[in-house]
Design a protein around this nucleic acid. Structure first.
Length: 424
RNA sequence: GGAGAGAUGGCUGAGUGGCCGAAAGCAACGGUUUGCUAAACCGUCGUACUGGUAACAACCGGUACCGAGGGUUCGAAUCCCUCUCUCUCCGCCA
């Protein structure tokens, strides 16, 4: 959510920023509602002030044994006016809130303006796509041959679009999770969190998934709980409605499964692990002072890159243009993995600075150096999503004989196994 | 799922209709004292909205907030209703 004061005081600045986002939003209505809201509040507050004064007098008069029935009758009328105004304020606030929740974040000054993914900028690339002396296969062919997963049986259990890892494939999934958690906790200074996988509507609204993404998420209607599409939701909500007392920055890492309906994506990448309704992810979340949030973003990206470098997987870092950034982001880097079987780059991580956008929605504050209470800045990044990392690992590690060589860093987590071979 | 108890400011904890935004203690912050530390003493010490002065810091006023939402009343932390959460006991259960 944007600061209503910013919109009120610098409407042109806000209009310009929003114009670079992909979904056009008009702030005129918000401004008009804000005007009406403040007028109604002022009027109601003045009446309440009067009522408070009179009520106090009634108490004094009664104690003195005087008749106060007439003055009470008058005050009751004031009370009725107040109630009507309070209702009006509530109504206006609800409308204003609804509009405010639909306004995306403003892009940071360093974000290139652009319409869509075509205007994103490649910031750097690490590693070179490997040259094959045979035709590289895609991860589905590799995995099925090696018995790492079984999509047919997964469909029997849960329908299309769910993964089912088997044997060494399941172990590799677990190994990657553990490897990344270990790296982020022991090398990068993150605290591990194992959060709930279902969350309330308030939590989803706090991080910005609701109301906009309701159709993309699984909802347990009986209990009105939502399955998390990312650990960002429960972890960022750790401090909802709180003034953080611990010194910032706070850095958390959490492994969770992620659930996404992928409504509107029917037919795209339906094969294999690339687009699935459930995938595992190790997520990084930071709560930081506003002054350092952009430094923290760069550090966050480096932490994610460190994982890929250690796994020896070629990747590139993209800076997203204003039109391609997600709703809540002020600045965002995507990290894409090279996938030889698809002969292309796969988006596997998104690292964003949300500035105070989420903190304002979720009401997460801290006391700054001057003792003043202010909203924190929140950041998060995938560090990383398992399914596509898995794809890259299989496709980059595949050999002419059909086996897959595992990166040295992951072998200790696989009981020393160096390569995945065909089942006996 | 059943029965009971509870939810007050960073923490502990008073407060059952008006002088309560809320005692007291602790913690924190500023200061005095001090060779240093400690102690003692003095002061400050919630948040949001809103009006004004003023301007990107601050000051003055108003309003609201004692788990959340409604209600009664001239007036609610205090009385009533609903909900949420916590604790204890019972039942069930990985």
């Amino acid at each position: 959510m944007l600061d209503i004061k910013l919109i009120r005081e610098n409407p042109d600045f806000v209009r310009d920023g929003l114009a670079t986002r992909n979904s056009p939003v008009d702030i005129a209505e918000v401004l008009a509602l804000d005007e009406r809201r403040r007028a109604a509040i002022t009027e109601a507050d003045q009446l309440k002030n009067t009522r408070n004064d009179v009520s106090r007098q009634i108490g004094v008069l009664k104690k003195a044994g005087q008749d106060t029935s007439e003055i009470q009758r008058q005050t009751r009328e004031i009370g009725e006016k107040i109630a009507a105004l309070d209702n009006a304020v509530r109504e206006i606030e609800a409308q204003q809130e609804k509009l405010m929740l639909a306004i995306p974040n403003l892009p940071h000054a360093s974000v290139p303006r652009g319409r869509d993914a075509a205007d994103n900028v490649v910031v750097r690339q690490w590693g070179q796509p490997r040259q094959f002396d045979f035709a590289p296969q895609d991860h589905v062919a590799i995995g099925e041959r090696l018995g790492l997963f079984d999509f047919d049986r997964a469909a029997r259990i849960a329908g299309a679009g769910f993964p089912l890892f088997t044997g060494p494939g399941a172990r590799l999934e677990r190994a990657l999770i553990q490897f990344m958690l270990d790296m982020h906790t022991t090398r990068h200074g993150y605290t591990e969190i194992a959060p709930p996988h279902l969350v309330t509507t308030a939590a989803m609204t706090g991080t910005g998934q609701l109301p906009k993404m309701a159709d993309d998420m699984y909802h347990a209607s009986r209990d009105d709980l939502w399955l998390i599409p990312t650990a960002e939701v429960p972890v960022t909500n750790l401090y909802r409605d709180e003034i953080i007392r611990a010194p910032l920055p706070l850095k958390y890492v959490a492994y969770t499964p992620c659930f996404r309906r992928e409504a509107g994506s029917a037919g795209k990448e339906t094969r294999g692990l690339i687009r699935v309704h459930q995938f595992d992810k190790v997520e990084l979340v930071k709560f930081v002072p506003p002054e350092t949030s952009y430094d923290e973003l760069e550090a966050l990206v480096r932490d994610v890159e460190h994982v890929l470098q250690t796994l020896e997987l070629p990747y590139r870092v993209l800076q997203l243009c204003s039109g391609d950034m997600s709703f809540a982001a002020a600045k965002c880097y995507d990290i894409e993995l090279w996938a030889p079987g698809h002969n292309g780059w796969l988006e596997d991580s998104s690292c964003s600075n949300f500035e105070a956008f989420q903190a304002r929605r979720a009401n997460i504050r801290w006391k700054n150096a001057h003792g003043k209470t202010e909203f924190v800045h929140t950041l998060n990044g995938s560090g990383l999503a398992l399914s596509r990392l898995y794809v890259a690992l299989l496709e980059n590690g595949q050999q002419a004989d059909g086996s897959v060589v595992l990166p040295a860093a992951i072998r200790p987590y696989m009981g020393g196994l160096e390569r995945l071979g065909p089942p006996a």
